[in-house]
Write a protein that binds this DNA or RNA. Structure first.
Length: 443
RNA sequence: GCCGCUUUAGCUUAGCUGGUGGAGCAUGGGACUGUUAAUCCCAAGGUCGCCGGUUCGAACCCGGCAAGCGGCGCCA
């Protein structure tokens, strides 16, 4: 049953002049009563297959002629080099077998017109037919790009002696604000879906010292923007004996490594989805500047933006701030009052915390949030109390600090935000197969 | 939680001041021996999102509802 030949190989010239057997799906067809052209697709590409009535016989020829788009077929034939064929290669079909036919009364619904004005495929129709839309060229490219981003996250951390470590998805307490938690019934109790691996990672920090994960996180935000999902994949790291600056080094290193990996592995796919490769190369090669929160506020005030010191930077302000940025920038040292308890106050000036956000250019916004953790028992209790957060759900977190607390920190990176930004997608939904947002959970 | 927009055939859509809805693609039939989103001819396919109102008459005007989409706050 396994495949002996792949369309990508044939298009690369590997089988010129030889007989091959191709298994795939009908992408397009055209032709006449005597000669028929089938553009066959598999996961590696497409190729034109030429079927002639003379050579095939009436039965096989009629089978092929009536094969609608997305019919699965097995074709045998010679590989012919021909300028008239897209990609320069074609198959002169000698035999054909239909494996899975398509009913003409219910043809494949995703037509050229369905994608015409979709611009990334985000019409209601295409979202409803997501299970079929996945096999179209744009989605296939996006899924391959996504796969390389995951691969790059793993290779970055593993090459640097980080250990992959896993946290539960059912949790009792919140990381971010409680309003964004998904409540789940749990044998008569209520638990929540995790928003972040971080608190559990900190518990393992004294064991592993350098750890990372890639896992889904869940946030019940009703946000309807091109940057939000309720279920997203979260790459997170935690490192012992490190401060804000060292953690940031890794954030920059990781993002640049992802960009470099995409250039190495997915240039064709990036170009196919319309991405300017020079931009991706710039993001891989250029250093990312650091900017303190105070500087950002002054810059914004200079631009006439209405902002006061102490306010968090919302997207509208981020957008103004980043509009002239040519590479991602780190924003550091936010006011203590704007950030949750686990951020460590800056010993040099306790008005600030040792934290950083990485803001992507081109309006894609925040892709990393991280910083140094509050690591002493005394300080964490102060921070929890000043925030008015109940201590009970965090007992285990506080306990970690009672037995040899050390300076440490980490960050979280939104995989889909990075995929979306580096691929130049119009919407975060384009880079995940079955997107989940506040209104859509099907298909 | 808030603001805005959309809904006409399987898909993409046209439809002017209210007077019985047109097209392209897809599908079916036919023609065609090198097509490139093939082309040409023909056919079938619509309770114009749902409910109510105004009117002699509503896809169109008014009200309500629903679904979807875009955005804000918050965040990765």
């Amino acid at each position: 049953m396994q495949k002996s030949h792949w369309i990508g190989e044939v298009q690369s010239g590997m089988h010129d002049g030889k007989e091959v057997e191709l298994k795939g799906w009908v992408h397009r067809t055209r032709g006449s009563n005597k000669i028929h052209f089938i553009v066959l697709r598999d996961s590696t590409g497409t190729i034109q297959c030429v079927a002639k009535r003379d050579a095939l016989g009436d039965d096989s020829f009629e089978d092929l002629k009536s094969s609608l788009i997305e019919t699965s077929i097995i074709l045998k034939g010679m590989v012919n080099v021909d300028e008239r064929a897209p990609g320069g290669h074609e198959i002169i079909v000698s035999s054909a077998e239909v494996v899975g036919p398509v009913n003409p009364e219910k043809p494949f619904p995703i037509t050229e017109s369905a994608m015409e004005n979709a611009d990334g495929g985000e019409t209601e129709f295409l979202l409803d037919n997501r299970h079929l839309y996945l096999r179209t060229g744009r989605m296939t490219n996006m899924l391959k790009i996504r796969s390389s981003v995951f691969g790059a996250v793993h290779s970055y951390f593993r090459e640097r002696e980080f250990t992959e470590y896993h946290a539960p998805s059912f949790v009792a307490g919140a990381v971010e604000g409680g309003s964004t938690l998904f409540e789940v019934p749990y044998f008569g109790r209520k638990v929540y879906l995790t928003q972040s691996w971080q608190l559990y990672a900190e518990a393992a920090m004294p064991a592993l010292e350098r750890l990372y994960t890639v896992a889904p996180s869940f946030r019940a935000e009703k946000s309807r923007t091109r940057r939000h999902l309720t279920e997203f994949w979260h790459a997170e790291m935690e490192i012992a004996w490190a401060g804000n600056a060292e953690v940031m080094e890794h954030g920059e290193g990781l993002v640049r490594h992802i960009a470099r990996t995409l250039l190495d592995e997915r240039s064709d796919e990036l170009a196919s989805v319309g991405r300017d490769l020079d931009l991706v190369a710039r993001y891989a090669d250029s250093p990312y500047p650091r900017m303190r929160y105070d500087e950002a506020v002054e810059t914004l005030q200079g631009l006439g933006v209405d902002i006061e010191w102490g306010q968090d930077l919302d997207y509208s302000k981020e957008k103004v701030l980043t509009q002239d940025f040519e590479v991602p920038h780190f924003l550091t040292h936010y006011p203590r009052i704007a950030k949750p308890f686990y951020h460590r106050p800056d010993p040099d000036d306790e008005k600030y915390v040792l934290c950083h956000d990485l803001l992507a250019p081109e309006g894609y916004g925040e892709i990393i949030g991280g910083g140094e953790r509050t690591w002493s028992e005394k300080e964490i209790l102060e921070r929890i109390d000043e925030e008015g957060t109940p201590r009970e759900p965090y007992e285990f977190y506080i306990d970690v600090r009672r037995y040899g607390g050390v300076p440490h920190g980490g960050f979280g990176l939104g995989i889909e935000r990075v995929c979306s930004w580096l691929s130049g997608a119009d919407h975060i939904r384009e880079v995940i197969p079955f997107p989940r947002d506040s209104r859509r959970v099907t298909p």
